[in-house]
Design a protein around this nucleic acid. Structure first.
Length: 330
DNA sequence: TACGCGTGGTG
DNA sequence: TCACCAAGCGT
């Protein structure tokens, strides 16, 4: 990694030039976008692809053009508007961050990394990214794309380490241009290169602006020295929670617990009459989506797992319990 | 430090 | 098809 630092100036020039010609036209990058717009985009983009964020971001900014507007509404509305972006706790944290901005920062997005770090849902990456992209400050932005570009171009490895480490952070700090504007351009450019060209699975080295300088290419593109750990899904509480969330998100009135916890009653009722007509009407009466409910029941999760998953939702305040059953806060 | 956290597109 | 992967965070 050290040797590559000598060509940092060339890397800056070539990657920033590539960005100028090839960057995607994303709404949160446009000159008129507010710091709040940048902030919202950064939270939504945590572990979620750009194409899925775009439509939700547009609707979000139209409905809540500034932090105080979001803070004025119940958190459940944020969860609903979040839709299927995933990790719905991010919606709660974004709502809480808007409340904190309203209370502690005069209704504005704070401009410094230190202040940004005090907001819920804002960690090392997001604080640096917002300070850099929304406020033009010189901050070292390190995300998964940037780590991968650094690992390949400078360290000659196929993939970065499983977790961000001190050596990577030092390298990123040393690579950051001194000039404020150049540092912002560099952050955005390396990230975009990692997202569009230096991708995880099938890097497009043929169109890479720095392929001649890439340590990984020079080393003959060696394979990763570790096996990425998979994300377990089938049969997990997480899967059950996701199915529960899909039902609760669109429900406009309390959802009875027994409707969520098992199809037993419905099966009996349906069998007693004829087909699933009874099931459909029962679900319609509860204001729930039949398809979402069917997916939940199709998992055939054990009752104790359903209870545990439901408790997990309640613990995160994604739903509130009342006499009638369950619903999102309204 | 390692793990859990949603969702859907894709090679 | 089915793991892998995606602008991380909090514990």
């Amino acid at each position: 990694m050290e040797p590559g630092l000598q060509q940092a100036p060339q890397l800056h020039t070539e990657i920033i030039s590539w960005f100028t010609a090839n960057a995607r036209d994303l709404p949160w990058r446009r000159p008129g976008c507010s710091p709040w717009g940048v902030f919202v985009s950064e939270i939504m983009l945590q572990q979620t692809p750009v194409v899925r964020v775009l439509p939700v971001w547009e609707q979000w900014m139209k409905r809540w053009p500034e932090p105080s507007a979001l803070a004025a509404e119940p958190s459940g509305e944020a969860v609903r508007a979040w839709g299927r972006l995933g990790y719905p706790r991010r919606a709660l944290r974004l709502h809480a961050a808007a409340a904190a901005m309203t209370d502690r920062f005069n209704g504005s997005v704070p401009a410094t990394r230190e202040e940004l770090l005090t907001l819920p849902g804002v960690g090392t990456y997001t604080a640096a990214a917002v300070a850099s992209f929304a406020f033009g400050r010189r901050e070292t932005v390190v995300d998964t794309n940037i780590r991968r570009v650094h690992a390949r171009a400078l360290s000659g490895k196929a993939l970065p380490a499983p977790a961000l480490n001190a050596a990577e952070m030092r390298l990123a700090v040393e690579l950051l241009p001194d000039d404020d504007a150049a540092s912002v351009a560099w952050n955005a450019s390396v990230m975009e290169l990692g997202a569009l060209v230096c991708t995880a699975r099938s890097p497009k080295c043929a169109v890479c602006p720095v392929r001649q300088r890439c340590a990984w290419v020079a080393a003959g593109e060696p394979a990763p020295d570790y096996v990425p750990k998979g994300q377990a899904w089938a049969g997990t509480d997480r899967q059950v929670r996701g199915a529960l969330m899909a039902v609760l998100r669109q429900a406009r009135e309390p959802v009875p617990r027994n409707l969520l916890l098992g199809p037993a009653d419905l099966t009996t009722a349906a069998a007693a009459t004829d087909n699933n007509t009874a099931t459909s009407s029962a679900e319609a009466d509860a204001g729930t989506d039949a398809a979402a409910l069917a997916k939940l029941h199709a998992l055939q999760a054990p009752a104790e797992q359903l209870e545990r998953a439901l408790a997990g939702l309640l613990a995160d305040k994604l739903a509130e319990e009342n006499d009638a059953g369950l619903q999102l806060p309204v």
